[in-house]
Design a protein around this nucleic acid. Structure first.
Lengths: 191, 191
DNA sequence: GTCTATAGGGGGATAGAC
DNA sequence: GTCTATCCCCCTATAGAC
């Protein structure tokens, strides 16, 4: 049925999951090659350095998000529906074995990352902030929800909370993310 | 003037800073010993395994927080003042070279941590949640601020946002934490 | 594309001398 | 308490055969 994925894609898939599970310094080429039944050196054929691999992960995630925001399933949706769909992205990370989000994983390891990965991480993070700010601005204009202050500041509040809550599910209650989302909804509901 | 710190304390100090900068898998015994002008093996004398060192960091931070919440500077303070003082703790992490908070660092690395460190991390995280929930409950009762829903859920929202915003300062704007705090204040201000 | 083989470094950790 | 010396493993990365 499904096209068998090419090796390069499989490597990025595995590496992305390892990154969200264990952080960039918490996995190795051997973790990837052993699952694929190939050798260490074969992975280096596709991604000469670990930085190349990291950049591939970030760029693909950035493009995936851009496609998601502009995709068919999003066309014609209200800002409120877009926000709910965004929440579901984070709930999926949680359901996938309490993974954290890519931004959180990269930012925590930020100071240990090669310079080119740091630059990609910054582009990635800003794409999320821009999109969320626009959705919030539009939703408030159409009276779908309410919040004080600037849309950009509310975007930071929501994104940072989702990121932090995803991490907290590991050490505090697993329901942390669900409860944070519910509280965000309450705080923005029209009185 | 100040008592010269004993070596054990200096090791924990250094390790804690390295942990908040680089994550638990991002520093080594050599990073510590080189600064102190001693050898790798001398650090192992105080902390035989890296897990021992990690646990010492967490337990000390937990006790420091407990002391902070019960300390003289906190006695007689209103819930609003306590919340502002808590914000300042996170602003200090940012000012100390964009460090993340201990919970965030440990939770992101959580799956790579030894079991005993995972258990300590959980105790640490829950102490923060409990305290924040109590402060919020009291503040609302006394009409110092307002928020919808349960105090515990609002505690999760605030803690997760501070944690995430601290991380985001590294990849997005450095002002992220300040803006998140300002937005939290706005969202809870009495109308 | 994938292999074997290996270089070269860093990591955590221990033994035993001082 | 701190040292030297060392073990052993894992890591990233490369060279060259198939």
């Amino acid at each position: 049925m499904a096209d068998p994925k090419d090796t390069k894609t499989e490597i990025i898939d595995l590496a992305e999951n390892l990154l969200l599970d264990r952080g960039f310094n918490g996995f190795s080429y051997a973790d990837i090659s052993s699952v694929l039944g190939i050798k260490n050196a074969a992975v280096h054929y596709y991604f000469p350095s670990k930085s190349d691999l990291g950049i591939a992960i970030i760029q693909r995630a950035k493009e995936r998000f851009a496609g998601w925001t502009r995709g068919e399933r999003m066309a014609g949706r209200s800002a409120a529906e877009k926000l709910e769909a965004f929440f579901r992205l984070y709930l999926k990370f949680f359901e996938a074995g309490q993974q954290v989000c890519l931004g959180g994983a990269l930012e925590t390891d930020f100071k240990t990352l090669p310079a080119d990965m740091q630059a990609e991480t910054q582009k990635f993070a800003s794409a999320f902030l821009v999109w969320m700010g626009e959705v919030l601005e539009e939703g408030r204009k159409r009276h779908l929800f309410s919040f004080p202050g600037e849309a950009k500041d509310q975007a930071i509040l929501i994104l940072s909370s989702l990121q932090g809550a995803l991490q907290m599910t590991r050490a505090a209650e697993p329901s942390c993310l669900h409860l944070a989302i519910a509280q965000i909804r309450r705080s923005m509901s029209k009185k």
